[in-house]
């Protein structure tokens, strides 16, 4: 079957989709957007979290056919999504960032200095906070956590620790023990409130 929907502000069409395919599979294998991750494919880990019409969901549990005509935001579009939110409607350039070329991503090579603020890639506050707080180790849980944390901060700009834990309780991380993730979200919240 064919599925048409919007990803990160850009219309997308997927063809020859098997009816049992998940949104996650279509994003990763058909649209070249592997940011949403395939850790459990049973809704238990949150690594595939994307926003579907604004709502965080596990993309592994959304049938591809169900997204027809709907809007999806993945981690690849998170920085732009956050930027537009900050700018407010109408004020900013709304061109969505292009999808990542897999060729580019296939072999990464770290250059120069470390992941510092403002270096090359534009990041959302929560993305930058994850880097700064050491919340990224293997990074496999990171995209899902970022989408979930960004959405929580949108709803609740001044979360308590218990609020953060509750909002992120659907995202498993096996490396960090979550302490640095807590720090990252606190940091993002603090920076966000400073910016306002």
């Amino acid at each position: 079957m064919r599925v048409n929907f919007t990803v990160n502000g850009r219309p997308q069409e997927a063809d020859d989709v098997w009816e049992g395919e998940s949104l996650l599979y279509v994003l990763r294998e058909r649209l070249g957007l592997p940011g949403a991750k395939n850790a459990c494919e049973q809704g238990e880990c949150g690594s595939c979290t994307v926003r579907l019409d604004g709502v965080p969901v596990c993309s592994c549990l959304v049938a591809a056919g169900q997204v027809e005509g709907r809007e999806v935001v993945t981690v690849e579009g998170l920085a732009e999504y956050a930027r537009q939110r900050t700018c407010g409607s109408g004020k900013c350039d709304t061109s969505a960032k292009g999808a990542t070329s897999l060729d580019d991503a296939q072999r990464w090579s770290a250059h120069g200095t470390d992941s510092q603020t403002g270096e090359g890639t534009e990041l959302s506050p929560v993305q930058q906070a994850f880097i700064d707080a050491g919340a990224v180790q293997c990074g496999f849980c990171t995209p899902g956590l970022l989408v979930a944390a960004d959405e929580m901060l949108e709803r609740n700009p001044t979360p308590t620790d218990a609020d953060i834990r509750e909002a992120l309780s659907g995202n498993l991380c096996r490396c960090t023990g979550y302490e640095t993730i807590m720090n990252a979200v606190r940091l993002a919240a603090a920076r966000q409130s400073e910016a306002v």
């Binding site: 049992g20 998940s22 494919e41 049973q42 809704g43 959304v62 049938a63 056919g65 169900q66």
Partner: peptide, 20 residues
């Protein structure tokens, strides 16, 4: 999809039709 898709992803079920 929180039950059905798990069964499909893990090959526990192959319904003839999915009714969205």
């Amino acid at each position: 999809g929180t039950d059905v898709m798990v069964e499909i992803n893990f090959d526990h079920r192959r319904p003839e039709y999915l009714l969205d």
